Amino acid sequence: MFHPDVSRGVHRLEHAHVNLYLIEDDDGITVVDTGFPSTSGRIEKAVARIGRRVDDVQAVILTHAHFDHVGSAKRLHERWHVPVWAHRDEKFLAAHPYRYRHERNRVLYPVRYPAGIPVLARMTVAGALWVRGIEDVALFHTPDSRPTEPLDVPGRPVPVHTPGHTFGHCVLHLADRDTVIAGDAIVTLDPYTGRRGPQIVSGAATADSVTALASLTALADTGATHLLPGHGEPWHGGVAAAVEQAVATGPS
Rank of each mutant, 00 (worst) to 15 (best):
L93G: 09
Q58H: 10
D144R: 11
L62E: 02
G116E: 04
R101V: 12
P147H: 11
A73S: 02
E90K: 05
V70T: 12
R88H: 12
I117R: 12
V107F: 15
D152M: 11
T142I: 06
I117P: 02
A128W: 01
D136N: 10
I43R: 03
A48D: 11
G51L: 13
A138E: 09
F92I: 06
P83D: 02
V84F: 03
D152H: 12
F92R: 08
V107D: 10
I50S: 00
V131S: 01
V107N: 04
A115N: 14
E149F: 06
H141A: 08
R88V: 15
F140L: 10
T142N: 02
A65F: 00
I117M: 06
I134A: 03
H87E: 11
L139P: 01
Y98R: 05
A115G: 09
D152S: 13
I134T: 05
F36Q: 02
V125E: 02
V153W: 11
P97F: 07
D68G: 00
L129E: 02
T162N: 00
V82W: 13
S40H: 01
V131H: 01
R156E: 14
H102E: 07
R52H: 12
M123G: 09
V119G: 10
D144N: 06
H102V: 09
E90C: 07
P147T: 12
R146F: 04
R42A: 10
T148P: 03
P37F: 04
H102D: 02
E90L: 08
R53E: 15
T124F: 07
V160E: 06
G41I: 13
G155F: 12
D152L: 13
R88T: 13
P157E: 08
R112L: 15
R112N: 04
L139R: 01
V82L: 10
E78Y: 04
P118N: 07
H161F: 11
R112T: 01
S72N: 07
G155S: 11
P37T: 00
P157S: 05
R112W: 13
L93N: 09
S38Q: 03
R49I: 05
R112C: 05
N105T: 09
A73F: 00
S145L: 00
L129P: 03
Q58R: 15
Q58Y: 05
D144C: 03
K74P: 08
R42M: 13
L151H: 04
V47R: 14
V84Y: 04
A59P: 12
R156A: 15
L151T: 04
L120D: 01
R88A: 14
P118Q: 09
V111G: 05
Y98V: 08
Y98Q: 07
F140V: 11
R49C: 08
R79G: 05
V57L: 11
G51K: 12
R104A: 15
V160R: 09
